[in-house]
């Protein structure tokens, strides 16, 4: 297959032989073995597949890989490391937020983008930014606490 996609993922330049129309999710998961974005619906409705492209959260299950061509893609792995976690990662651990954790990319990548734009969001702004994401374990209140804790780390 002559088709190729070139993108920067979590700080590394990657080239993948694939049809550029393939949704980014499958390139990340199956070709690059970056497993944190999950397949949830394939319809852009739940957010489990969320990554950031140039800092903006996108639903990778409905985003063709070509849309990330030449751009910077960030998954949870690139958001922070255990040694240097992103505030939202540190806050998630501190609050013991996830249960199954399958939906986690949607909430964390969206919250990280929110905190960059608005370092000290109000409750209403957090709810609005995170509306539409799905969590089946019912951890919404723990997510809220984590986002507020992460915001408190933003000085």
């Amino acid at each position: 297959m002559a088709d190729q996609v070139s993108l920067t993922v979590d700080g590394k330049k990657r080239k993948v032989a694939a049809d550029p129309r393939t949704p980014l999710l499958y390139i990340l998961r199956d070709d690059l073995e970056l497993n944190s974005p999950h397949f949830g619906c394939g319809l852009g409705q739940c957010g489990a597949c969320t990554v950031q492209i140039d800092g903006k959260p996108v639903r990778s299950c409905v985003t063709p890989a070509s849309a990330a061509e030449g751009k910077t893609v960030t998954t949870l792995i690139g958001l922070g490391t255990p040694e240097h976690p992103h505030p939202i990662q540190a806050a998630y651990i501190e609050e013991q937020t996830p249960q199954c954790g399958y939906c986690i990319s949607g909430w964390m990548m969206t919250a990280a983008a929110l905190l960059k734009e608005k370092p000290h969001p109000t409750d209403a702004e957090i709810r609005e930014a995170l509306a539409g994401l799905k969590c089946r374990c019912g951890t919404h209140m723990a997510i809220m606490r984590a986002v507020k804790r992460a915001a408190a780390m933003n000085v």
Binding site: S36, L76, I77, L79, Y92, T97, P98, G101
Partner: peptide, 10 residues
């Protein structure tokens, strides 16, 4: 299990 989950490695 939570650190691996929030760092995308679980």
């Amino acid at each position: 299990d939570i650190p691996g989950k929030v760092h995308g490695t679980y």
